[in-house]
Simulated scan of single mutants.
Amino acid sequence: MLDMQERRDDTRTRSRSRVLFVDDSRLMRFAAKRWLEQRFDVVLAEDGEDGWERLCNDTQIRAVITDLMMPGIDGVELIRRIRSAPMTRVRELPVLVVTSMEERAGRDQAMDAGANRLVPKPFTAEDLIDPLQIFLRDAEQDETGAYAPPNIERNRLGLLSRMRQATSLHERLGLPWCMLHVRLENRKEVAERIGARWGESMMRHLERALLREVRIEDSVGRSATDTYSLLLPATPEEGARLLRNRLRRSIARQPARFPGRSLDLEVSFFIQIPQFGDEAEALLQDGLARLDAPANVTPLRSPGTF
């Protein structure tokens, strides 16, 4: 029978899920611990061998984040050991793999070995926290189905398909609807200065910022290299303005934080009100073109950011 101290320890463990972070880089371990410990109980391992020992001995670990390239037991071998472990609690753990875009073969091997998600470098705090929360929530979710994410389309074709559906529905019912286009103005600058992968990481950060603010029935779509377009069903212009203003405030408070570097986002907005008879492709092209108007730009980047 558990004594009082053991009961308190067990309650704390349930309230803060324990996550194992495996990386041979001291900087990565330091950054990950600083970010993750805001939400989780964090255990660090210096390499795959150290990580495997901790998994075998610590029954409270609920998820694993591992680097791919490490001396000795690398990330792929660690995943293979996890998926073939005799202990069910280890074998069924969600595993996130931190990897650079150049490690194509290793990324494929990691997924084949049983990784749940790839986290591209450079990564932000949200790149780690958001998928962990989803995996852990899904593991504990009851049958009520309380969680439903907004719609997300990560390519232009998918977005156009949703636009055609929205146009058909709203014309048939005679309802207003709006689109809100959001462009990351400093994506190109960041990509040219410190690398294309950094620009893409900032786009992932912007996508998450948008998804946190929209409704379940809304859609967020990648409409251009530097732009997301939001479909807002049954939303009048005033509703779109309220969302735009809320996004301005929230994005200004959410810089993209990477290990050793923080980048603020410089964004522009354009609210578009579709008319009956508008064709999806022409509608989207017009909305993206209107983003070029200087009056739409909302600078959120602080001087000396990078």
Rank of each mutant, 00 (worst) to 15 (best):
G260W: 09
A293R: 11
R222W: 04
I152E: 15
V297W: 11
G72M: 11
E143I: 07
L180F: 04
I194R: 03
E102A: 12
Y147C: 02
V76M: 03
M87D: 15
W177D: 00
Q5V: 09
P150E: 06
M28R: 01
A32Q: 05
L247C: 10
V119S: 06
I82A: 02
V76E: 03
L206C: 10
R91A: 13
P233R: 10
H205M: 06
A146D: 13
V76D: 05
V214E: 06
E46D: 15
D292C: 11
I134N: 10
E46T: 13
L288Q: 11
A146W: 04
P120Y: 07
W177M: 04
M1H: 09
L20R: 05
L232Y: 05
L184H: 12
L175V: 01
Q60R: 13
G106V: 02
F135W: 06
A110D: 05
T11Q: 05
R8P: 00
S268H: 03
L232T: 09
D108G: 00
S161P: 00
T305A: 09
P122R: 13
G277Q: 08
L175W: 11
T11F: 13
T167E: 06
M101N: 05
R261V: 10
L27M: 13
F30E: 14
G114P: 00
R104I: 12
E213P: 00
L93Q: 09
R204F: 08
G145A: 04
F258E: 01
F40D: 08
V267I: 11
W35T: 03
H170E: 06
D108E: 14
A63W: 11
L243I: 12
M87L: 15
L210E: 15
L20E: 08
L44Q: 12
A31S: 13
A115S: 04
M101F: 09
E140V: 14
I61W: 03
E171V: 06
D226Q: 06
H181I: 04
T66V: 10
W177S: 05
A282I: 04
P94C: 02
V267F: 02
